[in-house]
Design a protein around this nucleic acid. Structure first.
Lengths: 339, 339
DNA sequence: TTGAAAGCGGTACCAT
DNA sequence: ATGGTACCGCTTTCAA
């Protein structure tokens, strides 16, 4: 069949002007609510707008105004992680809310392949957005380069190592230290850690914080490194720990998902939580309230991070801030029943 | 300080032409890899491009070409659901991959407030995208209206009741019937259902399918309706069922999250799964592999849905298809250990 | 108060 | 092959 129904040409300012019997300039003034338009002209134009079914083409407007009232939100996560990460959704929602407040449109771009990387970089170059928020940046990929080269107002969530830019994040080391100390405060003697994602800042920092809190009491054999912040790695990590050090009575899991896995492994091994073993996690994600018992954990302010990143970008768009500093958000400990 | 560093004006085709000593037309030809450009001109232009640091402004190009090579992905979920829904991420990734294949940019817009609704509708009107994929459409909201009015090539994921448009989805009723029958096939006598989200198509259809499969054997008191597809509602639903009908020996939970909750409640009540009670879920989401025992469930092809929606949109952009039909994807049963 | 005209950054057609 | 020019849809001086 392939009968494409006549693409109904959209009415333009031109059409409105013609029908209203005025110039396009006057129409534009009405459209933008400016002064110096006679009542009669305004009325005629408003009538014409309805008559011809006029809808403004914002893209054209942006071209001349040289600003778009839009900010990109770029997610740069490997496939699986994107689906799993409990924070990403919150960050997105937080950023969207903050931008929405200022009537900015958040456009989220996801990078899931080499091809995406260059296309997104092109998009950034293309003049479709006034700024960008980047989650999980890679150093020296086309996207970071585009942002730097074009000096696009940007903020990163999580500190991109090596990049000197504005960023917001949390203090993973300090938070890890704090919750480990709290765990120690419950009287545990043999405290271990299931460390994850040591190739990332966050993972390495959490381990570092654990080390700090343990000080002299640290027994290296009580540290079990695993690959991802995942439930399954949590199970494996806990099993390894139990095998190696059956007398373990406290565990700091690098994330709630890992902690949930640890709980599962402990239950399978017949250990009671928190009576025999105290367990603490990190993130305060959905996991934390679904385990039995519920997790004591570090609250990660996902929506706050998104909002802060958005505000940083908006400030730079407004030319208010040129600093490359980082903003660190508070991470209160939420004490529940698992320790 | 507020010293906005001199906004470095971006080089344009004009600049390149001037430096290369040719006309803008010729520059444009080189940019678009057309024929009929002398080697000398091409070389001069390429040199000039580097010299002035030219970066094309895609937005301007789109304006004249009247197409953007971008498709919107609109998510219209209430706040909490957005963070919970196990399918949305997969749909997004599937759509992105399919669009990426054709060198289209997916721009995801999230609707989380009244304000967002109108802003997104404006964005759609604005001429920034060639098409749209809509997840969780509302009937007669500004977004659906914009799409209809502008005849934007679109596809909906899940059948938007009342709207006559292209859509992709699954057959919830049939899938529910199939897995219920399979559950009955294991010899259960007293099979119930924790029905959820009955105000949505999907929820109502799954219950309908359950009813069909049960036929004469249906005992209305074994149906427990709960609010959301959530873990906690799963717990509550199962508790209610156990209270009312202690002899229950089979449960169809409206989603995996609900099933996970049911498992928790059953464990708390001392029932063994699958020995005492068989449980089946719906979605085949992350939940399914994290419960103990792992869930038997209906596989929901999230990425496939996203890809199919993307292809439908691309086809309509190409003017190939004008049908308003729906595409139904297969939902194989995945049999694990919970029944 | 209003219209005319010059762009915004490109593309595309038409002579040459 | 190339330059000239009209135009995409809208905003923004500048005169009148």
């Amino acid at each position: 069949m392939n009968v494409t129904p006549s693409p109904p040409r959209r009415a333009t300012v031109h059409d409105v002007a013609r029908v209203a019997g005025v110039s396009r300039g006057t129409v534009s003034r009405v459209l933008n609510g400016e002064r110096y338009v006679s009542e009669s002209a305004r009325a005629a134009i408003e009538r014409a707008i309805i008559e011809v079914g006029y809808i403004p083409n914002t893209a054209a407007r942006n071209l001349v105004r040289q600003r778009t009232q839009a900010v990109a939100f770029i997610v740069h996560e490997p496939h699986a992680l994107f689906l799993e990460d409990p924070n990403i959704g919150g960050i997105l929602l937080g950023a969207n809310a903050a931008l929405s407040e200022e009537d900015y449109q958040l456009v989220c771009l996801v990078v899931d392949s080499e091809r995406d990387t260059t296309r997104v970089a092109r998009y950034l170059n293309g003049g479709f957005v006034d700024g960008a928020i980047v989650v999980s940046a890679r150093v020296d990929d086309p996207i970071s380069r585009a942002i730097e080269k074009l000096q696009i107002p940007a903020a990163f969530v999580g500190h991109p190592p090596g990049l000197s830019v504005a960023w917001v994040g949390i203090d993973n080391r300090d938070s890890a230290r704090a919750i480990t100390e709290r765990l120690l405060g419950t009287g545990r003697r043999r405290v271990g850690m299931i460390a994850a994602a040591l190739d990332r800042d966050s993972g390495a920092d959490r381990l570092e914080g654990f080390r700090e809190a343990m000080g002299d009491r640290l027994d290296e054999s009580l540290i079990e490194p695993v690959g991802l912040y995942s439930f399954h790695d949590g199970i494996a990590g806990m099993e390894a720990l139990l095998r190696r050090s059956p007398d373990i009575d406290g565990v700091f899991a690098a994330s709630d998902a890992v902690a949930a896995g640890a709980l599962r492994a402990l239950a399978a091994a017949g250990r009671r939580v928190p009576e025999d073993v105290g367990v603490v996690g990190f993130d305060d994600s959905n996991w934390a309230r679904r385990t039995e018992p519920q997790l004591s954990t570090v609250h990660q302010p996902a929506e706050g991070l998104g909002a802060a990143a958005a505000q940083a970008v908006l400030a730079r768009i407004a030319g208010e801030s040129t600093g490359d500093g980082g903003t660190i958000l508070a991470t209160p400990i939420v004490w529940r029943a698992s320790a």
